[in-house]
């Protein structure tokens, strides 16, 4: 008897837990539900973007069934492989971004973005280069001088090897005339762990997304040397890398792709839905709240952008020596 209660309670909770995640798609009529794959664990950037998009899509058309599901693993390439298997499915979107472009190269993924249909670029975030408040480096020029003297002595803390932060470090080294392979890059599972070493003044410099470090720059615990954007960012007193003398621009962007083999009608339908979502108040509010930069782009424009990014990332990943 106790078993039955236990089982009932357990089943209920599982239903509750899974219900929140996947939603039950069978009820309700009309065309099939739009599914958005977040190729990462719940809680991260891609997941957050996907779930915000879900809310925004529902705000545009309350009757539309939208569900987000997670396929985590290997920088999103596990999700990418799954998406490739859904060829011709016009009701599926996958959130992705620069990190996936890097992971495809690094993991030598069999499936590439060529097997997807680019739909839209949504948001951008820039990288920031910081040093501990006690650091002798006052500018990018100081950092570069030390780099040229002995790259091994300049430890740079950031996110995963081959990720956006590492790519930024590599591009900076290259622009400064230092071999990217010589960069003494200390990889972490995320910006948070890297932050700890910076606050404790254990490393020479740190690179991560602006939002990861901005609070600490404002409180004076870290000093911003530069940002990777084309123009200076509002309310952040830091030059761009170009102003600081390194010809580097890097954007950590996020967007949507759909499975390959879509006909024009399906492609147009998805693009229209995403465009409407982007125009919604819910989306605009979320962009403002999360400190994202709106960089909406669709169609050929996005496809070209994606191609250019792949070329850029492929070159630098090879030079960093992180291809597995």
């Amino acid at each position: 008897m106790r078993l039955r209660i236990l089982a009932a309670v357990a089943a209920l909770s599982v239903a509750a837990v899974s219900g929140c995640g996947a939603g039950s798609g069978s009820d309700g009529g009309g065309t099939g539900a739009l599914r958005i794959m977040a190729p990462a664990s719940p809680g991260g950037g891609w997941d957050q973007t996907s779930r915000t998009a879900e809310q925004a899509l529902k705000s545009v058309d309350p009757k539309r069934k939208v569900e987000v599901f997670n396929v985590p693993g290997a920088g999103g390439t596990i999700g990418l492989a799954q998406l490739a298997g859904e060829k011709g499915n016009g009701n599926l979107l996958m959130t992705m971004g620069l990190v996936m472009v890097g992971a495809i190269e690094q993991n030598k993924s069999k499936v590439t973005l060529a097997q997807t249909t680019p739909i839209a670029k949504l948001t951008e975030e820039y990288e920031i280069i910081v040093v501990p408040a006690a650091s002798p480096f006052k500018s990018v020029a100081d950092l570069v001088a030390a780099w040229k003297a002995d790259p091994k002595k300049v430890s740079i803390s950031g996110g995963s090897a081959g990720g956006t932060d590492h790519i930024a470090a590599g591009l900076m080294a290259k622009a400064a005339g230092v071999d990217p392979k010589q960069v003494n890059y200390i990889a972490h599972s995320g910006g948070g762990e890297a932050l700890n070493e910076l606050l404790g003044n254990k490393v020479s410099a740190g690179i991560s997304g602006v939002s990861e470090f901005a609070e600490h720059v404002k409180s004076g615990k870290l000093r911003a040397l530069a940002v990777t954007s084309a123009q200076r960012l509002p309310d952040l007193d830091a030059p761009t890398l170009k102003e600081a003398g390194l010809n580097v621009e890097l954007t950590n962007w996020r967007g949507f792709v759909a499975p390959g083999g879509l006909d024009e009608a399906a492609k147009k339908s998805l693009t229209d839905q995403v465009t409407k979502m982007h125009d919604s108040q819910v989306w605009k509010d979320a962009v403002a709240k999360n400190g994202w930069i709106d960089s909406f782009q669709t169609g050929q424009q996005f496809a070209d952008y994606l191609n250019a990014e792949q070329t850029k990332v492929k070159a630098i990943i090879a030079e960093l020596g992180v291809v597995s």
Binding site: A74, S160, A161, G162, S189, V322, S324
Partner: peptide, 9 residues
């Protein structure tokens, strides 16, 4: 898995 420091599998 992927070695965190070098990105090698």
């Amino acid at each position: 898995g992927i070695d965190q420091q070098t990105g090698q599998a």
